[in-house]
Design a protein around this nucleic acid. Structure first.
Length: 117
DNA sequence: ATCCTGACGCGCC
DNA sequence: AGGCGCGCCAGGA
């Protein structure tokens, strides 16, 4: 296959159940590349497979993310699945998938802050 | 192999 | 609270 990464991303997105959403970043992490959120977007962009619910992949914090006119379709689909979608997906934490783990010692999201001497 | 682009994310202004 | 800029990664030309 073209890329292992791509295949993983697709397989992951396919598991997102109706009425639930996930983020580019989370998918990237699940695919084994925590910093490749943008790359996930690249994959979604090419995705034409109806088995892949790409409309359930949104931006961090509930932002829609999206692409051109498809953004509108995305909103429709999400609403059709019962989600409350405004400028951003509301109740995000409740419809997020997979269920966000709390106090996860293995999610050491690095915070590389630049100090000002 | 190299360069440019982009359905992202997050710190800062 | 919102917008801007820079960093990250994989794809495609």
């Amino acid at each position: 296959m073209a890329s292992d990464f791509r295949a993983r991303v697709l397989s992951i997105v396919r598991r997102v159940p109706p009425g639930r959403v996930t983020t580019y970043g989370d998918v990237a992490a699940l695919a084994g590349a925590p910093r490749a959120a943008r790359a996930v977007g690249t994959v979604m962009r090419k995705c034409r497979d109806p088995r892949v619910p790409c409309h359930r992949v949104i931006g961090a914090g509930g932002a829609l993310g999206g692409y051109g006119s498809f953004l509108q379709v995305k909103r429709e689909l999400l609403r059709a699945e019962g989600l409350d979608v405004g400028a951003r997906v509301r109740r995000f934490d409740e419809v997020r998938w997979p269920a966000p783990k709390r106090g996860n010692p293995r999610s050491p999201r690095r915070r590389l802050t630049l100090q000002k001497t």
